[in-house]
Amino acid sequence: MKRLALLALCCLPAAAQELRSGFEDMARETQALQREDATNPAMLWVQEGEALWSSPAGANAQSCASCHGAAETSMRGVAARYPAWDEASAAPTDLAGRIAQCRTERQGAPPLERESPGLLALSAYVGLQSRGVAISPPADPRLAPAMSQGAALYAERRGQLDLSCAQCHDDNAGRRLAGSTIPQAHPTGYPLYRLEWQGLGSLQRRLRGCMTGVRAEPFRYGAPEYIAIEAFLMGRATGMAMETPAVRP
């Protein structure tokens, strides 16, 4: 009986093991880039976001700050609680979606496209205010269907390589895929500066990269499937500290 329990313990998927941020597996030089704001290239986007936060836009000449005031206080911990339920569209939305919605509907400004520099900059600036805050998805029962859809998508084999997210990031996390260590895939630092991209990108861009990697057809940006996967991943990473804006290889 005891032996059986031991066997069960060593076969647990990574998600049930200790939560480990991708930060831990990076080269020391890349860690140093992230650790200090003076060297973190993502801070260039944060600077841009800070400027956008207080610059009036749209028909009403309102800025984010006109309603929300100082982001340091009003946006503290906000990014750690997304995706959240959006009353207007009666669907879950991610932080970037919320910012884009605020932009068009409340400010009356031209829409910010997904992955556009402006939206990434604002998401990074808002995300920064939650740095160090523990990820705590809202206990909203309306999000439950999205979370279970995300869990199903995460476990579903896809693409010509016929691989699911779980096969790498749960079953083989910590082992190597060619030269790199397979991380547990926790969305702690998005939007983040990826050295491969030489720029800032969102979680959806990262998911897209994995999907084309297994030769599956990626979803369009902003698709409910991505939001569902994000909701599942955030639930899986509950309690981990936010790192936004992170640096990854």
Partner: peptide, 28 residues
């Protein structure tokens, strides 16, 4: 272009200091 410039806050005369700079550029 956005620029980050890091200069030590307190500098004593005769001290050797490190200046760190980062500039936003595509470097195509």
């Amino acid at each position: 272009a956005r620029v980050l410039i890091n200069i030590p806050r307190e500098i004593r005369a005769g001290e050797t200091i490190a200046i760190r700079t980062l500039i936003q550029h595509a470097m195509e």
